[in-house]
Design a protein around this nucleic acid. Structure first.
Length: 570
DNA sequence: GCCGTTTTCGGCCCGACTGTTTTCAGTCG
């Protein structure tokens, strides 16, 4: 059993314990242990069977939870979990995803009504039954109904990070041949419905056999001569694998990468040229002679187009641009020279400044900005003015030469309801780099939110607007405001807009990136890392930026360190 | 349930908002 599975089981039990109203500190221990195990560099299962090692080596796992972990490893569950699973319907855990309902309300609802599904819950709201319970009213019923609808819309889709993890796992599994992901994953979409994998091979059978025999395949949906579909892993994501001969590989890659509308336009274009395009290749209408198909380049070229990067294939003008040889040269991961948004143990991060810097150096960065929270985020132990100044002082004394990386003193400063900064100007002036972000009052009327953000980007110390829309994928929409007005003001005030690489955010994203770029905005791509392992999320931010047609020149943290330092000087 | 210790018990990030109350519990971050 892998660490992630153990962690998930502990976290799930913690959720159930919360519904059962158990001791909050005990619950936290379960959560801490889950996080520690998930982030643990070695397989916990290996440590458990090594007589020379102890599971309690993992900080956060004591005697009690070590026994639990061993029980999980030996029989796939543990007593406490069994007891809770027995006591509550499976939908209890699902209900935690519904905004407005927490563990207490869920316990109450389950106690009073036999709720076994979200449909039951929906019915309770529609029948105005929820309001018969203490502290529940019409507004809550309304909120729950809206949240159920949003939750349903996201169900069955998976975050890009998760899908990429599965794709990487299967690529490793087929280490001796090339497996490539097509579909929305290849286009870098923030979420994907299923996974399309392509393999180039003349003899499909052994490849597909091996695919369906993967230990994580829970169900084989279909298996034919050239294609197999399975449900994969605990989450049950559908994975399709197609095996293609070399002469069709490029055509299949093109076809299965999509998007659908992009492909429709390409096929129309082929027809106008007396050709027909399908997943096997490009053919002449008369006589059926093969005109291409081994590579994507060949197909685009035969259609009079430059090769179009997958992230741009959304029928947003890329075909015209390719025809006129004016496709932008998109930013690449290797262009990134620094990460400008990260947290440390000083607030709610999990590692020290030195550890974060060391990991960034190992990633090959020239510079970073440490941007811990400001005091409005009390739950994160945000910095007040005195701590901000002390921190800037501390950074000033770091020997960058010796550290091997330039560290800029930064702050993720909360934007108050009125658009003012959560930290006084005097303290902000001590810093190199201020990211301003909204973390509260997210449901203001659009006009008030627009004024708030305009005031924020007009602040002379602010360099970046952090996660500008505030969306959380599968969870909540962004704040409502006049984005164009704020982007215009940001460009005018030299405030960059952030592409936040956190897989749950990916904010800004494609249509807004293009709109902001048209207004003359600059951007940063940063991870918002709260742990060294989050630094690797930069790849998702770069993919998102590419979907917004961003080039190296549009992004501040592609600059060499001296130019970057110059660019952020007031 | 973990951790650290002034070792075997006490502390563990908590403030703001919402909707429901009629003085505050529950949720959120």
């Amino acid at each position: 059993m892998e660490n992630i599975e153990i962690a998930r089981m502990l976290a799930q039990t913690a959720d159930l314990m919360e519904i059962a109203g158990e001791d909050p500190f005990r619950i936290r221990s379960y959560r801490n242990a889950a996080a520690a195990i998930e982030g643990f560099p070695e397989r916990v299962a290996d440590i458990a069977c090594n007589p020379a090692r102890k599971v309690t080596e993992i900080s956060g796992v004591g005697k009690g939870l070590a026994a639990v972990v061993c029980e999980i490893l030996s029989r796939g569950s543990f007593d406490k979990r069994d007891e809770l699973v027995e006591r509550y319907p499976p939908t209890a855990l699902e209900m935690l995803n519904i905004q407005g309902l927490g563990p207490k309300s869920i316990a109450l609802i389950i106690e009073h009504f036999r709720v076994t599904s979200l449909e039951d819950l929906e019915r309770l709201c529609n029948d105005q039954k929820l309001r018969t319970l203490p502290r529940m009213g019409a507004k809550l019923e309304d909120k729950v109904l809206r949240s159920i609808a949003a939750y349903r819309q996201s169900a069955g889709r998976f975050l890009l990070r998760f899908a990429m993890g599965v794709a990487d796992e299967l690529k490793d599994y087929f280490s001796d041949r090339t497996v490539e992901a097509a579909g929305s994953l290849r286009r870098g979409k923030e979420s994907v419905g299923d996974l399309d994998l392509l393999v180039c091979h003349a003899d499909p059978e052994p490849v597909l056999d091996r695919f369906v025999k993967h230990s994580k395949v829970s169900e084989v949906l279909a298996k034919g001569e050239n294609k197999a579909s399975v449900k994969f892993g605990l989450e049950g994501i559908q994975v399709d694998m197609r095996v293609l001969p070399p002469q069709s590989y490029g055509a299949a890659m093109q076809y299965f990468t999509g998007s659908k509308t992009h492909n429709v336009i390409l096929r129309q274009r082929a027809l106008r040229r007396g050709l027909t395009l399908n997943e096997y290749g490009l053919f002449e209408l008369e006589g059926n002679a093969r005109m291409g198909g081994a590579t994507e380049q060949e197909i685009y070229e035969r259609l009079g187009l430059d090769w179009i990067p997958p992230e741009m294939r959304e029928a947003q003008g890329e075909i015209e641009a390719a025809e006129q040889h004016r496709l932008p040269r998109l930013i690449e991961l290797s262009d990134i020279r620094g990460d400008l948004h990260m947290h440390t143990r000083e607030t709610d991060g999990r590692a020290s400044l030195a550890e974060m810097a060391e990991c960034c150096q190992a990633r090959g960065y020239e510079y970073i900005a440490i941007t811990d929270h400001s005091k409005a985020l009390a739950m994160a132990n945000g910095l007040d003015e005195a701590r901000v100044i002390a921190f800037a002082e501390q950074v000033r004394h770091i020997d960058h030469q010796a550290a091997g990386i330039r560290i800029f003193s930064g702050l993720e400063c909360d934007i108050r309801r009125d658009g003012s900064m959560d930290i006084d100007d005097d303290a902000l002036a001590a810093l190199d780099f201020v990211v301003a972000s909204v973390h509260s009052f997210m449901n203001l009327e659009p006009a008030e939110m627009t004024d708030r953000l305009l005031r924020a980007v007009e602040n002379r110390y602010v360099r970046v607007l952090g996660h500008p829309t505030g969306r959380m994928l599968f969870n909540r929409d962004g704040y409502k405001y006049d984005f164009e007005a704020v982007a215009t003001a940001a460009a005018h005030n030299n405030v960059a807009l952030e592409v936040n690489s956190s897989p749950e955010r990916l904010d800004l994203y494609d249509p807004l990136l293009r709109a902001a770029k048209a207004k003359g905005c600059k951007f940063t791509i940063s991870t918002d890392a709260h742990h060294p392992k989050h630094l690797a999320n930069m790849r998702y931010g770069v993919l998102t930026a590419r979907r917004g047609w961003l080039q190296k020149e549009d992004v501040l943290n592609t600059l060499p360190v001296n130019q970057f330092a110059e660019a952020i000087r007031r």
